[in-house]
Every structure is written in structure tokens, then in C-alpha cells.
Design a binder for these strands. Structure first.
Lengths: 179, 179, 179, 179
DNA sequence: TTTT
DNA sequence: TTTT
């Protein structure tokens, strides 16, 4: 089967970075993607699309993107469900970002060249360099200049729905890792 | 901004065709898209992605696809929200299918060549050339052979969330048309 | 069948705008898209992808993009062939851009909000609603501030291969219109 | 930058499988993708898009696809150039297939469930299982039933342009590996 | 014939 | 050099 999404939009808020109990980074953010057309009232709407990104690119996203950043996402549409606090099954559709592209030019946040935070399709892995997957051809590892002040939390258990992180952390474990 | 999705999967149920008060066709269906990889337990999961399609292609979908049909979708990710019966705001992410491709070969349902039901990607054009929009190079208008028996309803008001059509039709009007 | 391409990259040169004998605008440009990974020598390469765009969006491209501009393209891969001056058949693969997104932020060339030049994705609609096709929700018609100085030619016959416009205009007629 | 292509079409010929001097599998094939719309003469054309796929998925393609097979490709547009026999530089645009999806249902060639030959974004690689990358969740490794009779060649040097394999093998070495 |  |  096939499943591919490409988005370009702006972060509605700073990304949210967390770690699974076993230490895997997960970042979530919402992209506002303005529609190309206007509605019947003549105004342009936007779609607000929830995105998840894992591991190294998650950390890059947390470090280099913030509210308002222009970013591109290449990934897959994913669905999951969980039982909310009222015991009702909730269905969630979101985008699993395999790579996130920073499109804020030269000036913004920090990166001097427009970074590419590629995710789990990592080519160089084939040559055996375990450990820095997702770090494809950019040098974020070496020089991470002036990182954003980040209030990223380190839960031992994080909210099942990373977008509604209303405090009570629940039950996303490593089982939710997409690999 | 950019927003593009391509999916290939199978319908989880027969598509649901409805009409807005002003007579515009809307079909909804869910595509099961098997993932290319297995989870930690070693089994292959699927994503269940809700899709909406409008106008002529909606009718083609209703006529030529059914539960289990293999179909391709080219469209956009869209989000909307509505207030449910408990007065709580519900956020929905779904795929607006601009074109739907029938991938069931020769034999199945009916179409002899694999039809392409192209949708509303030329949005502003729709007002005024009623009748052959979306009918791009296929001949579904002329020969719709052995249509599926269809129980499609014709509400004057349809459910705000077309995927949870639990009977009580609410408040989707022409305002929900994406053009 | 399905055919979808999404690209983000930079123009290698100013776009080239021409007109068919019947007055239809065609712009061509090449996008340099840097690869996410490095080659065996450790350096990052780029793909140089030829793009074609028709009608109103063609004019927008010519007016608002220039060498080095960051742009997004949503379109289809297309192939054609022609006989070159030695009578040899030449096969060409390029991207037909249905919409072009200007991603140069606020400052650059002109546009204040990042325009979206949507193209010919509603093909059959074009006959008859001349004039505002492709102008989806942006206001380029009204305010085209400080247009680039443009040396766009108006051939009565343009080169069959718009990317090798080596002077001798040949044989692209309206037959090459993708609709 | 971003670069994503999704195609569904039919193979115009049996795929061509070769090996680089160092033993890496490369398959090439051309997808005929029918256009959704008709040209001015009213007939439906097709695009003939050259595709390349590497390693394990290359072998799967060679084993399970043949002329006429319906297949989906998820990959990137790539460009390269080489000097032909007349010493003239030739520019090539093709699709690097990261994953290839077999869409021929139940009956055809062999596979009983519609295989997914995923390419070099292989998730399970992250856990260290070198050697069977690209084999994502399908079981082609174990049961490759009734393989097609294949005349696949094993050049020590293969043609620089894998699509014009006119006999004289030239100069594609491991340098052409996209990783 | 390539962009930052 | 094109597929159903």
C-alpha cells in the first residue's frame, strides 16, 4: 500500500519534545497550512495538522523550530486510538514526519543554511554507522549554535495523546515507536 | 503553503454518498492502508484514513467502489472541528480526495479499464460549469455499467461529521463545501 | 493511474516566460533541490529538475521568482519527445507544475505574504473561464508590486524544448498544451 | 529541500536487473502512467517514467514484476548526466524508487498478498539488522515462489545509462549508488 | 546549463 | 523504446 504526505506550513506553537521511558525522543507540533483557495465568505482558511517526529530529527525540530517557523514535512498519515478519561475511545489522525525541512531562510532562529532533519529513512545507515541515523548531510551534531531556551519535559510516561498534553501523563510507551 | 497526500489502500466499508441541501454530492469512505513495516510484536498494522470526495467523483466512488476495493487517493489533508452532542469541540483530520483512482483490475465491480475520478482541484472553476467537472478523460457519464445497489441517502441536512453518521443528521450545509 | 510530485528548491536561473501562438503563457525554470544525504565523497549533491508551468501561474512565476528564489512545486512528472536538429528522437522528463509556491519570506523580490500560484489542475475547466483560472485566493491580479525587469520573449513559435532555448525557435504549438 | 514522487502505472517491459562491480543490485524499469485527461485530439496519453531501484527491492522488482504489471512507486526525482559515445553531455531525469508496491491483485505473477518492496528508508535497520534492509514486513526473503525466468545480467561494469542498455556497458560504478 |  |  502507499501512504505519503508532504506539507509546508508554519508551527502554531513551539514544538513539544518528550522522551519515552527507554529514552527515545519524540517531538510533536502542529503545522498551520494555509489553503490555496478561499471559502464562500471569501477568506482564506488554514488546516492545522498535527505532526509527530521521532529520534534525532525530533531533537532537531525542538532545537531549531519554534512558533511561526516555516517548515516542510515529508511523512505518512497515521491513525491511532486511545481511551480517554471518560473511557471513550478516541480516534486520532496525524502525520508521522519522516523528515522535517527547515525553510526559514538564513536569518531565523539559528541555522545558517536551512537544515534538513531527515528521519527514519536514513541512507547512510546502510554503511553501518549506527547511532546517528537521521543526521543526513547536515552538521547539526557538531555545531548546534545558540539553541532555543527549551522547557522540554522528560516524563517517564508520557501522554497517550501527545497533542493534548493536559498534564496527566499516560501510557505512551516504546510500543508506540513506529519501528 | 503546500499540502499533498497520496494514498493507496482498501475501503473498509461501502462508501457513503450524501447530498448537501443544494444538491452537491459528497462521498465519504475510509481507506485501510497497510503499513510497510511491522510493529514490535512483529505484526503488520494498518492506518484507517477517513476520506471525503465531492461532486461527480463522489458519485463515481459511490457507484464503483465498495468494501474491499483497492483505491488510490490524491488529495489534501484537511482539518475541521464541530461541537458534538455534549457541547464539546471535536477536531477532525481527514483527507479531501481531489481524485480517486480505481485500482481493482478488469474483473471487479464493473469498470473495464480502471477509472479515474478526478475531483475538485480547480476550485474556483466549479461555479458555472456544472455537469462535467471532474470528469477528466474517463467516460463514466456515458457508460455506467451494472451499478452497485446503493442505499445512498438524500438528507436535507447531513451529519456534521460524515464519518459518524449515527442517524441524527446535523448541520453540514453548503458552507462545508471546500470551494 | 497516479502521478504526483512535490518539490522544494531554488531556481537555478530566472524563469523563462513565453507564449504559444494562441497567446497562452508558459514558464519554464529549473529547481535545484539539494539532496538530504551526501555521496561517497562526502559532499551534498543536488538534483536539477526542469519544471513547466502554464497560464496565469506561469506569469506569476515570471513576475515573482528569480534566480535563487526558494519555491515549492506541486505537479506531475511528464514525458515528451521531439526530434532534434540531427533528426534524432530526444526524450524529455520534466515536472508539470500545477501550482507553484513562493517560499521566499517577507523580504525578497516583492510579495508580502508568500503567494500561491495555482495552476492547471482542473484541466477541462479552462476552456471558457479564461481570465482568472489559477488565481486561487491570492491577490496577485490586483497588486503586483515592483515587478522584476523581465526580458520575456513573445515568439510566434517557440522552441520545442523550452529548456534548451538555443535561439532557433521551433515547433511548440498549442498542441503542447497539457489540456 | 524536499523531493517526493508517487506514481502508479504499468511496466512497459520486464524490469532490468544488474549488479554493480561490488555486487549491489540495481533494477530499472519504465512505468507507463496514463494521464487523467485527454489531449486536444481527445485521446488519453501516458507518461513513460524511468525508474531505478537499488538493493533488495531491486531484486524483488525483478522477481515479481513484469511487463504490464501494475505497480506503485514512492521515491524521489533524480537527475544525472553522462557523456555519450559522441562525447556529448546527456542529461537524465528519472525517479529513484525508495519503495515499490506491487498492485497486481491476488492472481498475477506470483505473490499472494501484494508485496511491498520497500527501499532505502528501512525502519528495522535501526535495530542493527544489517543485511536485509528494504525487506519491510513482507516475507519475500522466505518464500519467493515460482520466480520469473530471468535473464538478468551480471556486468562487472554496467551501462552508465541503465535505460539505454544497448550492449556496450559503460561506467556505472558504485559511485552511482545513492548512498 | 546549475541554486543557497 | 512504450503499459491495460
Amino acid at each position: 500500500m502507499m501512504n505519503r504526505v508532504v506539507l509546508v506550513g508554519r508551527l502554531t506553537k513551539d514544538p513539544d519534545l518528550r522522551y519515552t521511558p527507554s529514552g527515545v525522543a519524540v517531538a510533536t507540533f502542529t503545522l498551520a497550512v494555509n489553503r490555496a483557495f478561499t471559502n464562500q465568505q471569501g477568506d482564506r482558511e488554514a488546516d492545522f495538522i498535527n505532526c509527530v517526529v521521532w529520534r534525532r530529527p525530533a531533537e532537531n525540530v525542538a532545537n531549531f523550530l519554534k512558533k511561526g517557523s516555516l517548515a516542510g514535512v515529508d511523512g505518512r498519515v497515521q491513525t491511532r486510538s486511545y481511551d480517554n478519561q471518560e473511557g471513550k475511545r478516541v480516534y486520532v489522525t496525524e502525520v508521522n514526519a519522516e523528515s522535517v525541512q527547515f525553510l526559514e531562510p538564513k536569518n531565523a532562529t539559528s541555522s545558517q543554511s536551512g537544515g534538513n532533519y531527515s528521519g527514519n529513512q536514513g541512507n547512510q545507515d546502510y554503511r553501518g554507522n549506527q547511532g546517528n541515523y537521521g543526521n543526513q548531510g547536515n552538521n547539526f551534531g557538531q555545531n548546534q549554535p545558540q539553541e532555543k531556551n527549551q522547557n522540554n519535559q522528560n516524563y517517564s510516561r508520557v501522554d497517550k495523546d501527545p497533542f493534548s498534553n493536559d498534564g496527566q501523563p499516560i501510557d505512551i510507551s516504546d510500543d508506540d515507536l513506529p519501528f
